[in-house]
């Protein structure tokens, strides 16, 4: 028994030792249409030049509730059901940055920490003492500081950048899991139904078993 206690103690110690990696800033993504709509707008303006969202089609945005005329300006002469491909070609991006920018459709679920990872990454840029650009979350990243967070010194500017990052991440969370709201809603019905059904089964079970003496 003592052996196992020491083992358990070791486990606790080991898990606290692990937690010392770069800390993510937790973010609670917005699910309301306004936030997500601001997020698409920011992504179209700041990210779409380099990044694709190949699993999202323009008409998905219209179905989501974004104004059709706005979507029309984004898609230009591409058809409504074409995927949101990046404006820059992959080979150009590799030439410019040394690495192809990854597709963002699933980004909010594709890293440990999910949306919080992307949020912390976007806000993680800083200027090193040598005057170089660094990132706390992904130190060797080839992506430039898109939100310009490393140049912001005042609180108001920082808050604005955080708000924008949250909008972006909220949209990316939607893009990664567009049916989440439907799923939750259906989930409540299913659980409610199961709860009633199980309760009734419990009553029937008691009744059937009460015949046994």
């Amino acid at each position: 028994m003592k052996k196992f206690m020491t083992l358990l103690a070791c486990c606790c110690f080991a898990s606290s030792a692990l937690a010392s990696e770069a800390k993510l800033e937790a973010v609670k993504v917005g699910v309301d249409l306004q936030t997500v709509a601001r997020g698409v707008d920011a992504v179209m303006n700041s990210c779409h030049s380099c990044h694709s969202l190949k699993y999202i089609k323009y008409h998905d945005l219209v179905n989501l509730g974004i104004d059709k005329s706005v979507v029309d300006t984004w898609r230009g002469d591409q058809p409504m059901d074409s995927a949101m491909l990046a404006q820059m070609s992959e080979s150009d991006a590799v030439q410019a940055y040394g690495k192809a920018p990854p597709d963002l459709s699933l980004m909010a679920k594709a890293r440990d920490g999910g949306a919080s990872y992307v949020y912390s990454y976007l806000l993680g840029y800083y200027i090193t003492p040598e005057g170089m650009s660094g990132n706390h979350i992904y130190p060797a990243t080839k992506m430039p500081d898109i939100l310009g967070i490393s140049g912001i010194t005042d609180e108001a500017g920082r808050a604005e950048a955080q708000g924008k990052a949250r909008d972006i991440v909220s949209f990316l969370a939607w893009a990664a899991d567009p049916d989440e709201q439907t799923r939750h809603k259906l989930g409540y019905y299913v659980l409610g139904y199961l709860f009633v059904l199980t309760f009734l089964l419990y009553l029937v079970k008691n009744q059937v078993w009460s015949k046994l003496k």
Binding site: L186, V190, L194, T198, Y202, V204, K205, W209
Partner: peptide, 26 residues
């Protein structure tokens, strides 16, 4: 006796399963 007991257990199981399917599948 056991058909009903198994069904009742199934109801309990499905509730847990559905919490995962609908609320935290990822």
């Amino acid at each position: 006796y056991f058909t009903i007991k198994d069904l009742y257990g199934l109801g309990l199981f499905l509730m847990v399963y559905c919490v995962f399917v609908f609320f935290m599948p990822n």
